[in-house]
Simulated assay, not measured.
Amino acid sequence: MARIEHVALFAADPHALKDFYVEALGLRVILDNSKASPPGYFLADDAGVAVELIGRPTEVPAVDTRHVCHIAFIVDDVAAARADLEARGLTFEDDTAVDNETMTTAFFRDPEGNRLQIVKRPRPLVS
């Protein structure tokens, strides 16, 4: 069974957008990547639902959804989940797969073309 882990959004000004979500909606910063390139933040509500804000690089058009604008689902086994989804006819982006000490992840598109991600982390992003 998969559960939604986070939703990611591009932000022209991730610092200001982070402030809006914190001040207007009561989310809290759970991961500060403000010094990364591009900068960003993970925010969460009290139920553990997370929003990832990613600074949009100036060379990336606002409509590019290659690395953002996705829904991420927590799975117990990325390889098994991927095999099941591929058996359903879905195709994965091999060049965006990550398998390191912080996470294992893979991206694909749903039947309508929406970008989705399966992810497993050794430590939950939101606790």
Rank of each mutant, 00 (worst) to 15 (best):
P57T: 06
D32T: 01
H70M: 05
R88I: 01
P61W: 01
A106I: 07
D94E: 15
M103C: 13
H70G: 07
A81I: 05
N114L: 04
A106D: 14
G26L: 06
D77H: 06
V63G: 06
A16D: 14
V119R: 06
A50I: 05
A97N: 08
G40R: 08
T102R: 07
P122L: 03
V126P: 14
K18I: 02
S37I: 00
K35P: 00
A81M: 09
D84V: 03
D64P: 03
T58I: 10
E23M: 02
R109F: 02
L125M: 08
K18H: 12
N114F: 02
F108R: 06
R88N: 12
V49C: 04
R66K: 15
P57Y: 03
K120S: 04
F107G: 00
Y21H: 07
D76S: 12
L17V: 12
I54P: 10
Q117I: 00
A87E: 10
E5L: 01
E112S: 12
T58E: 15
M103Y: 06
G113Y: 09
V7K: 00
V60E: 09
T102I: 03
D84K: 08
V7E: 00
L116Y: 02
D84S: 09
S34K: 11
R115A: 08
E5Q: 15
D32W: 05
F92M: 12
E112A: 14
R121L: 02
A36G: 11
A47G: 12
I71Q: 01
S37D: 08
P111G: 06
N100K: 00
L125H: 08
F20Y: 15
G89R: 09
M1F: 08
A47N: 13
L25D: 04
H70D: 05
A81V: 02
L90Y: 15
A2L: 12
G40I: 03
E23G: 07
R66T: 15
D32A: 03
I118K: 05
V49T: 08
I118D: 07
R82I: 01
H15G: 09
F20C: 07
Y41E: 06
E112I: 04
D84E: 09
A16W: 12
A79M: 04
A80G: 08
A36N: 14
R56Y: 10
E86S: 13
Y21S: 06
D110C: 02
A72H: 06
F42R: 13
N33F: 14
V126M: 14
A83Y: 02
E5P: 10
V75I: 03
D77K: 05
D45W: 10
V78L: 11
